[in-house]
């Protein structure tokens, strides 16, 4: 019966996207009159009992498995053991890079229908129908899960974190060891950056900035606002910015609360990756730039004059 939420951690913290998934799972369990269990895999110093503050009463911690997240097969095997042990019917993921490898494997393993990119709680009056993004955010589809077991992978920034009070009981969970067929040779992490997928504010710039040497003001604005930085595809293709900053139809799809686009024309392929942002601000010197049609706020002007003034205004505000 219960709803199990696959809860990810990094640097000894529960990830923000997982807190969204936890809130979603708790809300769904409420609707289904059942309990919500958080499943945490791998050792972590994150204070798991604090998941109680998000409505969780029980945390199942598979802490003895030093398993690598990249090993999708072992990961799916561990999750399915926990699902079986608790006879859960619904499994919730946040649609992270890890989930993209694991949730579909689990779907096959458990013959559980999977909806990835969910944006809302299932409609239970209409069988079990979940709304998800399709056409790269240009539309939604209502997908009904037909199987008794169900998996939902929730889009990041699509569901609000809901706080409650209480402490959760943490129950260690021992899993059968699974040999890994993947040898990790090297890991490169960009330290200190805000993850673009999880960021609630994103400052993005395009070819209008003329060259990589002009990104200083973008980074300064981002830093002031605690935002992540992003860019249009040609900018990444010209190696002005790292590839992982590329957003759009063929890059990352994001849905932050605030997206500021500087010197980006707003081509349909760019919009596809950012149009779910809650507030969109466009700064472009061309009044005809298509991006203005998708924007909430706009400034028609030269970025090299407007952005430094914005930075000043924000500094004033912070004083």
């Amino acid at each position: 019966m219960p709803v199990i939420i696959f809860t990810e951690h990094s640097e000894d913290k529960i990830k923000k996207s997982s807190l969204e998934a936890v809130s979603y799972g708790v809300a769904l369990a409420g609707k289904l009159n059942t309990e919500a269990i958080a499943l945490v895999v791998g050792p972590t110093a994150a204070p798991l009992s604090q998941l109680g503050e998000y409505g969780i009463k029980k945390v199942v911690h598979a802490n003895d498995t030093a398993i690598i997240a990249s090993d999708t097969k072992s990961m799916a095997a561990i999750i399915s053991q926990a699902v079986d042990a608790h006879q859960a019917d619904v499994i919730i993921f946040s649609n992270t890079l890890t989930a993209k490898g694991v949730a579909p494997r689990l779907s096959v393993r458990m013959k559980a229908g999977l909806v990835t990119g969910a944006v809302a709680l299932p409609d239970l009056t209409n069988e079990f129908t979940v709304r998800k993004t399709v056409f790269s955010g240009k539309a939604f589809a209502d997908v009904t899960i037909l199987s008794p077991k169900k998996i939902i992978s929730l889009n990041q920034n699509a569901f609000e974190i809901i706080k409650s009070t209480g402490a959760a009981e943490v129950i260690p969970f021992t899993t059968a060891t699974i040999p890994s067929s993947i040898k990790i040779k090297k890991v490169n992490r960009m330290a200190g950056e805000i993850s673009l997928a999880e960021a609630d504010k994103v400052i993005s710039a395009g070819r209008g900035l003329k060259g990589p040497e002009n990104w200083g003001m973008v980074e300064e604005l981002a830093k002031l606002l605690g935002a992540a930085t992003a860019c249009s595809r040609p900018v990444a293709d010209s190696n002005w910015r790292p590839h992982h900053e590329h957003v759009g139809q063929t890059g990352l799809a994001i849905a932050p609360d605030l997206y500021i686009a500087i010197g980006i024309s707003g081509a349909i392929q760019h919009l596809a990756g950012v149009n779910r942002s809650k507030t969109i601000v466009v700064i472009n010197k061309d009044p005809e730039a298509p991006f203005f049609k998708a924007a909430d706020y706009g400034i028609i002007g030269d970025a090299f004059e407007v952005v430094p003034k914005m930075i000043e205004a924000i500094k004033q505000l912070k004083k």
Partner: peptide
């Protein structure tokens, strides 16, 4: 078949941009 798509929905249109002088 484990899932079936029932219907599609288009997102609500933006209400229009608020322009601020440069």
């Amino acid at each position: 078949k484990l899932t079936t798509t029932k219907a599609f929905v288009l997102p609500p249109a933006k209400s229009g941009v608020k322009l601020i002088p440069a």
